[in-house]
Amino acid sequence: MAEIAAGRGLTYGCAVTAKLLEEEPQFAALVAQEAGLLVPEYEAKFAALQPEEGRFDTAPLDALLRWAEHFRKPVRGHALVWHDALPGWTRAALAEGRTRAMGVLERHFDHVLAHTRLRIRDWDVVNEPVANPPGSDVPEPAGNSGDLRDTPWLRALGPDYVAIALRAARQRDPTLRLTLNDYGVEADTPPAEEKRQRLLRLLRGLRARNVPLDAVGIQGHLQMREPFRAEVFRDFVRQIRALDLQVLITELDVREVRPPSGDFPARDSQVALRVHAFASAAFEGGARTLLTWGISDRWSWLYREQAVALDPGDVHRGLPYDWELNRKQMWRALARAYLGQGVG
């Protein structure tokens, strides 16, 4: 896939873990063959890098980076500031107030960005800052009426925390690509439309205040139960591009309905149609990079996480390769989207 994408001046990549690269040779071989860009699924999150205050553990991330360097594959970072994957000590520290929170953020940025400076040139500096509107799977608490999600960072630093994080990252690395990453803006539904508008308001506000930001990541965790209109999503991507921001699809996968209907070919056909429409719209809108959140159903979070998994004995067929590591219709749909071709 990476070669097909590169032939059109585009990029394909996927999420990986150091453990799978080390312990699953089939996974490692597949990634080496298919991906032109990698992102750590866990190893660069706050809890992984600083499990205890002042004690940084970069060994798993370093192992992943060494593997990537061996195969000459760039790595993007995920994620510096996020409400999830925070160790208990961090949550307690952020609850102590603004001064303490600023110290936590600055020390984490100091260590992590210095350590990865020569090897990671693109970071999700802020992940999932936008509030989920009413009607979303996980809407904001009734008391939160703003555009920003209620998080420990928001409570500690106020609504300017996104700008604080972006400025802190730029100060430490002037040439780093700074990315703001979020989800829930892909579907043709009222909650998704409201979240698109919230994200655009945030981006325009950052631009108006000259806050450094280079790119927007749209996760692309698609759900088959939600309607999708290509022109709506394409135009949204164009609106972001009009702000002189790059757009990346950072975490593409597909969640099927529960229970799924039909046999594997029928299911795969529906997933492929959705992925082709989504990826084509993204590229037409101006996105140039697309990553899937994994590469095979066998190792997907959609299988591991009980909250999103299908019934026992079944798995979401939401990645380019199936459990047996065969290319699915989704792989071919992505390839045709990269080539600018119809679904076929």
Rank of each mutant, 00 (worst) to 15 (best):
R238S: 14
L248W: 11
Q306C: 02
L213S: 04
A307W: 14
A266H: 12
L213E: 02
R298P: 01
I218S: 08
M224V: 01
S280G: 13
D311S: 14
E251G: 00
R238G: 15
Q219S: 11
Q219R: 12
L245T: 05
D235Y: 06
V308P: 01
V315H: 01
T289N: 00
I240C: 13
L273S: 11
E305G: 01
F283R: 15
G285F: 02
L319K: 04
R241C: 15
E226F: 06
A307N: 07
A282G: 07
Y321T: 04
G220K: 10
A266Q: 15
R317Y: 11
D297C: 05
Y321C: 09
P265C: 11
L243G: 06
E256D: 08
R304A: 14
G262T: 04
A307D: 08
L222G: 09
W299D: 05
M224F: 00
P312V: 07
R225M: 10
A279K: 09
G294E: 06
E256H: 08
D268T: 03
R234F: 03
L310Q: 14
V247M: 04
G286Y: 02
G294V: 07
V271Y: 07
D253H: 05
G217P: 11
I249S: 08
A282L: 05
D244Y: 06
R258E: 14
A281V: 03
R255H: 08
R298D: 00
D253N: 01
A230N: 10
L291D: 02
A272M: 09
W293C: 00
G313C: 04
A266K: 09
F236D: 10
I240E: 12
E256S: 01
R298M: 05
V216Y: 12
L310P: 10
R229S: 04
T250F: 14
V315P: 09
R267S: 05
R234K: 14
